[in-house]
Every structure is written in C-alpha cells, then in structure tokens.
Simulated assay, not measured.
Amino acid sequence: MKRLILSILLTGLVGHLAAQGKDISYSSQGTKLKGYLVSPENKSSKAPGVVVIHAWMGLNDFVKGSATNLAKLGYYAFAADIYGEGVRPQSPAEAGKLSGSYKGDRDLYRSRIQAAIEQLIKAGADPERIAVMGYCFGGTGALEAARANLPVKGVVSFHGGLDKRGDKQENSEISAKVLVLHGADDPFVPESQALAFREEMRSRKADWQMIYYSDAVHAFTEPAAGNNKSSGAAYNEKAAKRSWEDMKKFFQEVFAM
C-alpha cells in the first residue's frame, strides 16, 4: 500500500515538473527581454512551437498559464516579453501609453516578435512549424507576424485589435494562415475595423477565418477582467472555452498533427 501511494505521489510530481517553465533572458536590438519557456514532456523529436504574446499589462501569470497549457498539448511554448525586462505598466493609463507606442511603431513590434520566434527555435521547436498567438495587444501582434510574413505557419488573435499600420502600404500575399477569435459585442473593435480587416485579408490573398462569440466583449478569455460587461472588457467562460477549442483545431490543421 505504501508503495502504491508513493508511486501515485511520484507520478503526480513528474507531471507537475513536466509542466513547469523557466525564465529565459534574451535581447532584441540591444534591449534586454525576459520571456517564459515551457517545453513539451516528450522532447525526443522536433515538436511545433507557439509564441504567446501578452496583453497591454505585460507578461503575467495568465500568459504563462497559456504557455503551460500549450506545452501539455505537445508544443514548445514561449511567452514573449515585448516591453523589456522589468518593464510592467502599473495602471491602465500607463499600459495604454506603452502598448500604443508599439502599435505606432510596427517595425519595432515585429522585431520583438521575431526575437521571440528565434528563442523558440533555439529551445528545440521545429523551425518549419511555428505559430504566434496573442491576447488583446498581443492579438494585434499575432496579426503583425502574418502581415510581415515572419517565418510562421499560422497566427491566432484572441480579442485583438484588427487595425493595420498607416505609414506603409503592404500588398504582398500573406503566407501564414490566420484565425481571429472575436467578441461579437467588443466595443473597442468597431465593425468598420473588422470590415477593413476582412478586405485586407482578401486583397492579400490570405487563408483566414474569423469567429464571433455571442455575448462576448473585449478580454473575454481573461478571468481578471471581471464580469462587468458594461465596462467593455469582461470574462466570458463559454467564449473562453470555445475559443481555446477553436485554437486547438486550428493548430492541428496548421501543424498537420
């Protein structure tokens, strides 16, 4: 009986350790960054990799949890640090200003994403099977990875902004498959922006999908957003679960697993 209990405890401990991640220090254009890497339990062969981009408040436990859950699905997952090591907004006003600076400089944003992709490959992910996903501000980043034709097979935006850069016209075909997971009642992404996004995808001959979730506003995947829908940002458990399942099916297609 004691051996059985010990075996159960050790099995649980191994499973727990397998899901543990580690901080990774790296840099981009001279800026120090610190991301969070979680590797799949079975690393004997090349597995696909997913970069996870945080929302406007910066790299946090929610994004690290997403990376951990992706690793449980068999992927290498790297929670990217876009802002820089130790740079974390202390208020929504500060977060808005900081995230806005990257939306205003899309080349800088894209270079930070590229640096995260390189770290993912360095960790052991198959360079031919990389994807990028992100939440809110990070969802915008995922779309930027597709727009820039970074070396990725697919991108997923969870309640992200859909607007594109205004300083340059980009007309090349988009090679990555695109999945947008969108709250049907999101007040921060007007339908005019969604319409412009769809036209952009068509004009650039992208393979794209856009799924709307009823009764969902901005930040619908994040429990920390609370449940006050009237604020424009709130957690929606049903939409959160459905969108995760839609993401899983998308990655299975993209990675052909």
Results as ranks from 00 to 15, higher is better:
L6T: 08
I8L: 09
L9E: 01
L10W: 07
L10A: 13
G12E: 00
L13E: 00
G15V: 05
H16R: 00
A19H: 00
G30K: 09
T31H: 04
L33G: 11
L33W: 04
L33T: 10
Y36D: 14
V38Q: 09
A47D: 00
M57Y: 05
N60I: 01
D81T: 01
G84H: 03
Q90H: 07
P92Q: 07
R106L: 14
D107N: 14
L108Q: 08
R110N: 09
S111Q: 11
Q119Y: 04
I121L: 06
A123R: 03
A123I: 00
G124M: 03
V132C: 04
V132K: 04
M133S: 03
G138K: 00
V155Y: 01
V156S: 15
H159M: 05
H159V: 01
E170C: 15
N171K: 12
S172E: 15
E173L: 05
S175V: 06
L181A: 08
Q193M: 10
Q193C: 04
A194T: 13
L195M: 07
A196Y: 01
E200L: 11
A206T: 12
Y212R: 01
P223A: 07
A224V: 10
G232Y: 12
A233F: 13
A233G: 11
A233W: 14
N236T: 10
A239G: 05
W244P: 09
E245T: 13
E245C: 05
F255P: 11
